[in-house]
Amino acid sequence: MAPIPTPSAEPDDSPDTYVGLDSAAAERIARERGWPTVRSLPPGAIITMEYRAGRLNFEVKDGFVARAWKG
């Protein structure tokens, strides 16, 4: 039987701290804080709804983070 995979750890970090930041700076900071996956999306993008531990999502409007959430 295969071992149960261990989910990626999530940094103790609030997504709200990224709202209003320049998207490039927000992504750099998120990676420095330990997020293994950072995803930038345009407003209204169609995305899957699965939750992925260790992923931080940014909705980017006009080059700035308008919304951020885990998973």
Results as ranks from 00 to 15, higher is better:
residue 1 M to V: 10
residue 1 M to T: 10
residue 2 A to T: 01
residue 3 P to W: 04
residue 4 I to R: 15
residue 5 P to Y: 03
residue 5 P to A: 15
residue 5 P to T: 07
residue 6 T to P: 09
residue 7 P to M: 01
residue 8 S to P: 13
residue 8 S to G: 04
residue 8 S to L: 14
residue 8 S to V: 06
residue 9 A to F: 02
residue 10 E to C: 06
residue 10 E to M: 14
residue 11 P to S: 05
residue 12 D to T: 09
residue 12 D to E: 11
residue 15 P to N: 09
residue 17 T to M: 03
residue 18 Y to N: 07
residue 18 Y to Q: 04
residue 18 Y to G: 03
residue 23 S to H: 10
residue 23 S to A: 14
residue 24 A to I: 05
residue 25 A to F: 00
residue 26 A to N: 09
residue 26 A to S: 08
residue 28 R to H: 11
residue 28 R to W: 06
residue 29 I to H: 12
residue 29 I to G: 02
residue 29 I to R: 15
residue 31 R to K: 13
residue 31 R to C: 04
residue 32 E to I: 05
residue 33 R to Q: 14
residue 33 R to T: 05
residue 34 G to I: 01
residue 34 G to H: 02
residue 35 W to R: 04
residue 36 P to R: 00
residue 36 P to I: 01
residue 37 T to M: 11
residue 37 T to W: 04
residue 38 V to D: 08
residue 39 R to F: 01
residue 39 R to P: 00
residue 39 R to G: 01
residue 40 S to L: 08
residue 40 S to T: 06
residue 41 L to P: 05
residue 43 P to N: 09
residue 43 P to I: 04
residue 43 P to V: 02
residue 43 P to K: 10
residue 45 A to Y: 08
residue 46 I to T: 11
residue 46 I to N: 14
residue 46 I to M: 06
residue 47 I to N: 11
residue 47 I to W: 13
residue 49 M to S: 13
residue 49 M to Q: 14
residue 49 M to K: 12
residue 49 M to D: 12
residue 50 E to W: 02
residue 50 E to C: 03
residue 50 E to Y: 02
residue 50 E to I: 01
residue 51 Y to P: 03
residue 52 R to G: 05
residue 52 R to C: 04
residue 53 A to T: 11
residue 53 A to V: 00
residue 53 A to C: 05
residue 53 A to G: 10
residue 54 G to N: 09
residue 56 L to E: 06
residue 56 L to A: 08
residue 57 N to W: 00
residue 58 F to L: 08
residue 59 E to S: 04
residue 59 E to K: 00
residue 60 V to P: 06
residue 60 V to W: 01
residue 60 V to K: 01
residue 61 K to H: 11
residue 62 D to E: 15
residue 63 G to R: 09
residue 64 F to G: 05
residue 64 F to R: 14
residue 64 F to N: 10
residue 65 V to H: 01
residue 66 A to P: 00
residue 66 A to K: 07
residue 68 A to H: 01
residue 69 W to A: 08
residue 69 W to L: 06
